[in-house]
Design a protein around this nucleic acid. Structure first.
Length: 243
DNA sequence: AACAGCATCAACCGCCCATGC
DNA sequence: GGCATGGGCGGTTGATGCTGT
């Protein structure tokens, strides 16, 4: 990418006009973004490639969600922040439709000032700590099949049920000191899941990409909620099970 | 109505990483 | 291996709108 600032060579800066947006959308819809540096020249835009890329990625591309953050979104972002710090792109990966820029702005204007982080100071990048934790956990006997992801009961959407959780790829304990053996004591955990298929007595509940689940357990009983689970489907399954 | 202070967020800058030569 | 380049990311800024006085 060009190292010189965008204003050189007479390129425009500042707020995008509707006409510019339309040109960019029309070009990308027809030809795609094969080369951001060359794109503005062919699209008829007096902008640098970086500016075009930013505009498209953060505002113009399809299926972008803006605003309307739910309480669950807030909690998810805070939890992810505690895990990975200011890696906004990594957080955005887990929230379909959200951009790193939007989450970053939302953090700075809402979540940060609410003082929701009691345990981890703002700005601390915990990636290394998380890596060490994952390494430690990956060597843990708790990953054996009888303990890792199967045959717990869950309180997702406030209902109790039995389920088997498939495709659990990472097992994280984010509360050091409470990582105790299921079947013995009160314990807690969080699960980082990717396209998990949650099955309840033969019913399959879809999930939307990666997400977090949180739970507490006593013995092998596990109260669990997975954020990306389709709660409407869960409710339907529950109704059918209760018939 | 006018102004100041604050909040929001779009946009830019500079750096880093991956890739190709 | 070294360099050039493009893409991506996080931090920061500045324009704009909102709210209170």
């Amino acid at each position: 990418m060009v190292r010189t600032p965008c204003e050189k060579n007479g390129l425009r800066k500042g707020t995008w006009t509707q006409e510019e947006d339309e040109k960019l959308i029309a070009y990308i819809k027809r030809y795609g973004h094969w080369n951001w540096r060359q794109l503005p020249k062919y699209a008829g835009l007096q902008r640098c490639g970086k500016s075009c890329r930013l505009r498209w990625m953060n505002y113009l591309r399809p299926n972008i969600k803006r605003g309307n953050y739910t309480q669950q979104d807030d909690e998810f972002i805070i939890n992810m922040y505690q895990q990975v710090g200011t890696k906004w792109a990594r957080i955005a990966e887990k929230l379909p439709g959200r951009t790193d820029s939007d989450i970053k702005n939302y953090w700075h204007t809402n979540l940060k000032k609410r003082g929701k982080l009691q345990n981890n100071p703002v700005g601390v990048d915990k990636s290394d700590e998380m890596d060490r934790m994952l390494q430690q956990i990956s060597e843990s006997p708790l990953l054996s099949p009888e303990y890792s992801c199967r045959d717990f009961s869950t309180s997702s959407t406030d209902h109790q049920m039995n389920f088997a959780l498939e495709d659990c790829f990472t097992y994280i304990d984010n509360s050091p000191g409470s990582f105790e053996t299921p079947g013995q004591n009160l314990w807690s955990e969080s699960l980082l899941l990717d396209n998990a298929e949650i099955q309840i007595n033969g019913f399959s509940i879809p999930s939307e990409g990666p997400g977090f689940g949180f739970g507490f357990g006593i013995g092998n009983s596990f109260a669990f909620h997975y954020d990306n689970t389709d709660d409407l489907v869960v409710d339907q399954v529950i109704k059918e099970l209760l018939v």
